[in-house]
Computed example of a mutant assay.
Amino acid sequence: MTGEREPVRVVVVDDDPLVRMALRLVIDGEPDLALVGEAADGVTAIAVVEERRPDVVLVDVRMPRRDGLDTTREFLTWPVPPRVLVLTTFDSDDLVLGALRAGAHGFVVKDTPPARIVEAVRSVARGDPVLSPAAMARVIAAATGPGSADARGSSREAARRRLAVLTERELDTARAVADGLGNSEIAARLHVSVATVKAHIGSVFAKLGLENRVRVALLVRDAEG
């Protein structure tokens, strides 16, 4: 029928069969989502995703044979990579941060309510990163805590010099990103449209040479820390 959209194709990668079963039930219960494959480790995931060509891959962080970080990096070297949504229990913040740095589009906690997982998949499929304020705070804490590489290598003045290339509105947008706000929330805070927010975020990424919101948030926190 004219106007109907194809469902978002999803592959789930997790070594826990109960997690895979739960996600299968959640995804298959939505008419606009379709589970097209599963894998229990990163090695198998590469083959499954290459064959099935999903729109979104949910990837566990800790897995046998090949972890989620390395698997994500592999996906994102492809000419047409899937969008990656990282699964975590928050006992592995450093790996989650690494996955986001590698280009993942966000992450969800495994005990997230099913409705929010579904919305996360839809958001990532649209190209909107999924980073809740609480999750953002945990990742930033892991990245900038005592002894971390970012804490040792960061410089407040260096960060401020980098941010100086932004316009005032772009800087306001970057600060809102650092607060963990989504596009609609940023639009409400700044009293602009969501399309304008997306344009500002694209400009922030381009000017700063960064690839995702977490990196922007870390830079803002370095500058204001």
Rank of each mutant, 00 (worst) to 15 (best):
67 D>I: 07
67 D>H: 10
67 D>P: 08
68 G>Y: 03
69 L>C: 09
69 L>E: 03
69 L>D: 03
70 D>F: 06
71 T>I: 03
71 T>V: 11
72 T>V: 09
72 T>Q: 03
73 R>A: 04
73 R>V: 05
73 R>I: 05
74 E>A: 13
74 E>Y: 10
75 F>H: 10
76 L>K: 02
77 T>I: 01
78 W>Q: 15
78 W>V: 10
78 W>P: 12
79 P>L: 04
79 P>D: 11
79 P>S: 07
80 V>D: 13
80 V>L: 07
80 V>Q: 11
81 P>Q: 08
81 P>K: 07
81 P>L: 12
81 P>N: 14
82 P>L: 08
83 R>V: 02
83 R>P: 08
84 V>S: 06
84 V>G: 07
84 V>I: 03
85 L>Q: 01
85 L>V: 10
85 L>D: 05
85 L>E: 11
86 V>F: 03
86 V>M: 08
86 V>T: 04
87 L>Y: 10
87 L>G: 10
87 L>N: 08
88 T>I: 03
88 T>V: 06
89 T>M: 15
89 T>Y: 14
90 F>G: 00
90 F>S: 04
90 F>N: 06
91 D>R: 12
92 S>G: 10
93 D>F: 00
94 D>S: 12
95 L>C: 01
96 V>E: 06
96 V>M: 12
98 G>D: 11
98 G>H: 13
98 G>M: 13
98 G>Q: 14
99 A>G: 01
99 A>Y: 01
99 A>Q: 00
100 L>N: 08
100 L>I: 05
100 L>W: 03
101 R>T: 12
101 R>Q: 15
101 R>W: 11
102 A>I: 05
102 A>H: 03
102 A>R: 02
102 A>Q: 02
102 A>V: 09
103 G>E: 04
104 A>N: 01
104 A>P: 01
104 A>C: 06
105 H>A: 14
105 H>P: 00
106 G>D: 01
106 G>R: 00
106 G>V: 00
107 F>P: 05
107 F>A: 07
107 F>Y: 15
107 F>D: 04
108 V>W: 07
108 V>F: 02
110 K>D: 11
112 T>F: 08
112 T>A: 13
112 T>R: 11
112 T>G: 00
114 P>H: 10
115 A>I: 13
116 R>N: 13
116 R>P: 07
116 R>E: 15
117 I>C: 10
117 I>E: 06
117 I>A: 01
118 V>I: 14
118 V>S: 13
118 V>Y: 03
119 E>D: 15
119 E>G: 14
119 E>T: 15
121 V>P: 12
121 V>D: 11
121 V>F: 08
121 V>E: 09
122 R>Q: 14
122 R>G: 14
122 R>F: 07
123 S>M: 15
123 S>K: 15
124 V>L: 07
124 V>A: 07
124 V>F: 05
124 V>E: 06
126 R>L: 15
127 G>S: 05
127 G>H: 09
127 G>K: 04
127 G>Q: 08
128 D>I: 08
128 D>S: 13
129 P>M: 02
130 V>F: 01
130 V>R: 13
132 S>G: 07
132 S>Q: 00
